[in-house]
């Protein structure tokens, strides 16, 4: 198998292809979708926030966990960033961003601690903190809303500015993706995250630092939710207590569509990022092609179910193939004898 066919057979290639088809078809119907300056910008800018969230979520899902509180973490950190601009007017933008990221990491760490130490399923814990974090935001913000006028112009400009035709927020998302993907593939810690998701009991038996890794995964996810909060504030210019409501479902959907197995152990953050881009691009493409509102949601739903079904089919086919290989390897009792001859 050459490197090219290996690349093409990867799950990510399929998603990238689907993305290209969606863009291609929509552009054929409505050239402005891609070929106008606004179309190009929207194509790159719209998925930026979801990509950052999907990358963080993918790391958590790979460990056979999930963090449903990302929407609430985003809302809370976005409001925190806005509040800082109002209350401490001279604070540099970088410091505000760092504070929001750190706050997100702490929120994620709370989730991770409960999951790692109390051994309660992440689904339940983070469903709880989803409401708790949202409740904190509601109490803190009340009916208050932070508007574009409250935030520095330089900060808001980040939401729309482009460098060499690429929006700044997209660059941020791309850098996050590259760094995390590099870590997951090339570091010991990254491979251990896969191992933990693949078989948590075996990971304990092997003496892997399971708790520390889980804490790290949740903290990273929280930090990225914090970064996404800052990006949200810059992009939309208004933050209320309801920022990011319901976003968690989109994030988990993107991760699943991107080929990260919900039972952990397999998939890549690149796939999750592509899944996020595919979901949002389809969302924007459907009205352009003239598909009614109701069907737009149905298509997204079908996409998620289709992705999961595809995963099951592929997994079953693979295990069947591996099992069949074993059968042909060792036809009954003659197997070991064959192997003896095969070894030099």
């Amino acid at each position: 198998m050459t490197a090219l066919t290996a690349l093409l057979r990867r799950r990510e290639a399929g998603i990238a292809l689907a993305l290209l088809v969606v863009i291609g078809v929509t552009t054929a119907i409505q050239p402005g979708f891609l070929l106008s300056s606004g179309g190009w910008r929207d194509l790159l800018l719209t998925p930026a926030i979801l990509v950052v969230l999907a990358v963080g979520q993918a790391v958590v899902v790979i460990t056979r966990n999930v963090d449903l509180s990302v929407g609430s973490m985003l809302g809370l950190t976005a409001y925190l960033a806005g509040r800082l601009f109002i209350d401490v007017p001279d604070l540099p933008i970088v410091v505000v961003a760092l504070v929001a990221v750190a706050a997100g990491a702490v929120l994620g760490l709370v989730n991770g601690s409960i999951v790692a130490f109390a051994r309660v399923p992440a689904l339940v814990i983070t469903l709880g903190t989803l409401y708790v974090y949202r409740g904190v935001a509601l109490t803190w913000a009340g009916s208050d809303r932070i508007d574009a006028g409250d935030m520095p112009r330089a900060f808001l400009a980040l939401g729309t500015r482009q460098v060499l035709g690429v929006p700044v927020l997209t660059i941020v998302a791309a850098v996050v993706l590259a760094v995390v993907a590099y870590y997951m593939y090339t570091s010991r810690g990254g491979r251990q995250l896969y191992a933990i998701g693949s078989d948590p009991d075996a990971a304990e038996l092997q003496g892997l630092p399971v708790r520390r890794r889980l804490l790290g995964a949740f903290a990273l996810n929280g930090a990225l939710a914090g970064l996404a909060g800052v990006m949200f504030a810059a992009r939309y210019g208004t933050v209320s207590s309801g920022a990011g409501v319901g976003l968690e479902l989109q994030v988990v959907g993107a991760v699943v569509v991107g080929g990260v197995a919900i039972f952990g152990g397999s998939g890549t953050v690149v796939g999750a990022a592509l899944g996020a881009m595919l979901l949002l691009t389809i969302n924007r493409a459907l009205p352009v092609v003239g598909i009614p509102d109701f069907w737009q949601r149905a298509v997204v739903g079908a996409l998620i179910i289709g992705a999961i079904a595809l995963d099951r089919v592929l997994a079953r086919r693979r295990s069947h193939r591996l099992a069949a290989e074993r059968d042909t390897d060792q036809p009954g009792g003659a197997g070991p004898a064959d192997r003896e001859e095969a070894t030099p």
Binding site: R188, Y194, A195, S198, D199
Partner: peptide, 16 residues
């Protein structure tokens, strides 16, 4: 106790 999603080599050297 092996990790089905990792390769054989990764299983051997996991963590080191």
């Amino acid at each position: 106790a092996s990790f089905p999603d990792l390769t054989v080599a990764e299983n051997i050297y996991l963590g080191r």
